[in-house]
């Protein structure tokens, strides 16, 4: 069977079951049930943000190849610079911590855990009566991708596994070559700065902290998973520390911008009001 199809199938299975379990445990059956009724009007209310996210994702999917060419021709060749900046940090991480069990864990987190981490908040905030948080989340995702795409084009750099194969093993792909079929569909090897895995995970974490009153159980789970994803990017030899720091900055910037763009008042037309979410929202500003 085509490795891509099999890996996508497994991905759907893992993420689907995790969403189910976490949905019941974190969101609660009652809210999940109510979600069904409110689904269409809530999605309609955030339609502009959804369209924006859609456009960004589409542009990324369609334009990635040509932007890559632009990057190759006119981008800043930064591999050597990043290496000069941080040296053997990633090599040190691998030399110090790599054991087979951790490799399995981080490979799992990098692919399955990450997709779950990104999809769960969407479901959780969709289950809230007010759409402010959902709107902000979608906007923040879109900003992450959009700014990420611009930076990918400006910066042309390869990751540690590509620069120092003598010291950094490409753990993910050596142990799971079919994952590569998946990641190569959605990413280019020369797009390392910033780490979008890091930025999107940290975005989710930031939202999880901001909505801790609404979903107290989600905050520690998100903290655990996103920290794992961030570590995994370096443990697996895919990203530089510099990419990770860039990713964190991108995440915080995107969340702040999303809060500026979406006011709680935008939700005024909503018949329901949920003080708690509004409070959590304004608390973040």
């Amino acid at each position: 069977m085509n490795p891509l199809v099999s890996v996508v199938g497994r991905l759907a299975l893992w993420v689907g079951s995790m969403l189910l379990v976490a949905g019941v445990a974190v969101i609660g059956p009652r809210r999940l049930y109510e979600l069904w009724d409110g689904l269409v009007p809530r999605l309609w209310r955030i339609r502009y943000s959804l369209v924006a996210l859609g456009i960004v994702l589409l542009a990324s999917a369609v334009g990635r190849g040509s932007l890559q060419t632009v990057s190759e021709l006119f981008g800043l060749q930064m591999t050597g610079f990043i290496y000069a900046l941080e040296g053997n940090f990633v090599a040190w991480v691998q030399a110090t911590f790599v054991v087979p069990e951790l490799t399995i864990y981080f490979s799992w987190v990098y692919v399955y855990g990450y997709v779950f981490l990104l999809s769960f908040p969407f479901l959780a905030y969709l289950a809230l009566p007010r759409t402010t948080m959902l709107n902000r989340l979608v906007i923040a995702y879109a900003l992450n991708y959009a700014i990420g795409l611009v930076l990918y084009t400006v910066v042309f750099a390869h990751g540690p596994r590509n620069l120092m194969p003598d010291m950094v093993t490409s753990l993910l792909f050596t142990h799971n070559p079919d994952f590569m079929a998946l990641t190569s569909e959605v990413n280019e090897a020369a797009n390392v700065f910033p780490s979008l895995h890091t930025s999107l995970s940290v975005t989710v974490l930031t939202f999880a902290v901001l909505t801790r009153r609404e979903y107290p159980l989600w905050t520690p789970i998100a903290a655990w998973l996103s920290t794992s994803v961030v570590v995994a990017t370096m443990y697996l030899g895919i990203h530089w520390l510099t990419d990770v720091i860039g990713g964190i900055a991108l995440a915080l910037g995107s969340v702040a911008l999303a809060y500026r763009i979406v006011d709680p008042d935008d939700d005024a037309e909503s018949p329901e009001t949920d003080r708690e979410v509004a409070a959590a929202g304004s608390g973040g500003e």
Binding site: E72, T79, L163
Partner: peptide, 28 residues
């Protein structure tokens, strides 16, 4: 190729010649 480049860069660095490796596609 990258391993050859790494060895040259490291040994040259040790001698005092600064070297930086930049990776790119074969086309580039």
């Amino acid at each position: 190729g990258i391993r050859i480049a790494r060895q040259l860069a490291e040994n040259a660095e040790a001698v005092g010649i600064e070297m930086q490796i930049n990776t790119m596609s074969l086309r580039d």
